[in-house]
């Protein structure tokens, strides 16, 4: 034991330990309540006590988590987040409707002939309902249908798992979009209604144009040799490319029209989709290579499933923290500039 530790009274040591536990709280809470809380904790402690008892320690840590979650709940319930969630709900549902529709015409004939896949019809149908119900402002119904849509997308992809796990991985971003729409819908259930997002028709136009590009590619070249202008037997340019560029410009314009705070939050909300795509491309590159070359499919291990499931929420949490930090920093810079101008 050092001289300092020996000279430290039981009271001081207890206080030091309480203050260490207090670091679990957010800075705002500590600034506001730490002195009071430490005073209360010390007043309630028996004389000569050097360590917090287990129940006090657990109470502080659990409530630190509660306060942090409440803080995040308040932040995420803010108007800008809700408007971003509204954009993601509508644009995501429109996108999934487009994805579902683009294969439907080619498969509808076999469907009528009885060789059908009901999920091919269910997918666009359920997302069309989500779009209609969300625009009608029926928030609870939209959430229920979006959750059903997410289940349909999961089932659609899960069917391949036994014979082609790599295909499941390749489609994981699409499932993430579906889950994102369900989560965004649930996000909007509580609190005041959010007005229909600005620029929604631009998003719709972007999808129609992208859909047109895909139809051009599919119709002219079919699925097998699709998407290229062939000159002297060599692929030169995808005919759908101009359509896709226009669609990207329209979607970009719709995104830009949302205003800075909502734009940043849309990026944070859609970051999990990019995150899962990057994780599959880079983190699972070896698995994809092996899985496609072995005669019998290699299934994912529990750890790999855990990584896949944890990636979207982790990426979102990181993106949300970055948005928060960026905005705080920007506010400080603005305040600094205002102070300079006053001088």
């Amino acid at each position: 034991m050092t001289g300092d530790a020996q000279s430290m009274t039981a009271h001081d040591e207890l206080e030091r330990r309480y203050r260490r536990l207090m670091t679990a709280y957010p800075r705002r809470h500590r600034r506001e309540y730490e002195e009071e809380m430490v005073a209360v904790l010390l007043a309630a402690a028996e004389p000569g006590k050097r360590r917090p008892d287990l129940r006090d320690g657990a109470d502080l840590l659990v409530n630190a988590l509660v306060v942090r979650l409440r803080g995040w709940g308040g932040v995420l319930g803010a108007e800008a987040w809700r408007r971003a969630a509204s954009v993601v709900q509508l644009a995501g549902a429109l996108f999934l409707l487009g994805v579902g529709l683009h294969r439907l015409p080619l498969r509808l004939a076999p469907f009528l002939a009885g060789g059908a896949d009901a999920l091919d019809v269910a997918r666009p149908a359920v997302w069309a309902i989500v779009v209609a119900v969300a625009l009608a402002g029926l928030r609870r119904v939209a959430t229920g249908v979006a959750m059903a849509g997410a289940v349909v997308e999961v089932v659609h992809v899960a069917r391949w798992y036994d014979h082609s796990p790599s295909q499941v991985l390749q489609s994981s971003w699409l499932v993430t979009v579906a889950l994102l729409v369900a989560v965004a819908s649930a996000w909007l259930v509580g609190g005041p209604p959010v007005t229909a997002p600005r620029g929604r028709w631009w998003f719709a136009a972007a999808l129609v144009v992208a859909f047109g590009g895909r139809v051009v590619d599919d119709r002219l070249y079919g699925y097998s040799s699709h998407l290229a202008l062939i000159v002297e037997g060599r692929p030169q340019v995808r005919l759908g490319v101009p359509f896709y560029l226009i669609a990207a410009a329209l979607a970009g314009w719709a995104w830009w029209r949302q205003g800075g705070p909502v734009r940043r939050r849309i990026l944070a909300l859609t970051a999990p989709v990019a995150g899962i795509a990057a994780m599959v491309s880079y983190g699972f590159a070896g698995f994809m290579y092996s899985s496609q070359r072995f005669p019998s499919p290699i299934l994912l291990q529990p750890v790999q499933w855990a990584v896949l499931l944890a990636t979207p929420p982790a990426v979102f949490a990181l993106a949300a923290v970055l948005v928060d930090r960026w905005e705080r920093l920007s506010a400080l810079v603005r305040l600094g500039r205002q102070a300079e101008n006053v001088r």
Partner: peptide
Amino acid sequence: HGYAVIEDVRRITDGRVTLRAGTLYAVLD
């Protein structure tokens, strides 16, 4: 003040409920 609230709650509930500091200040906040 905080400590008096803890004592008072103990009295009100005949000793059944003892609020701890973490819980009390989460509620007060």
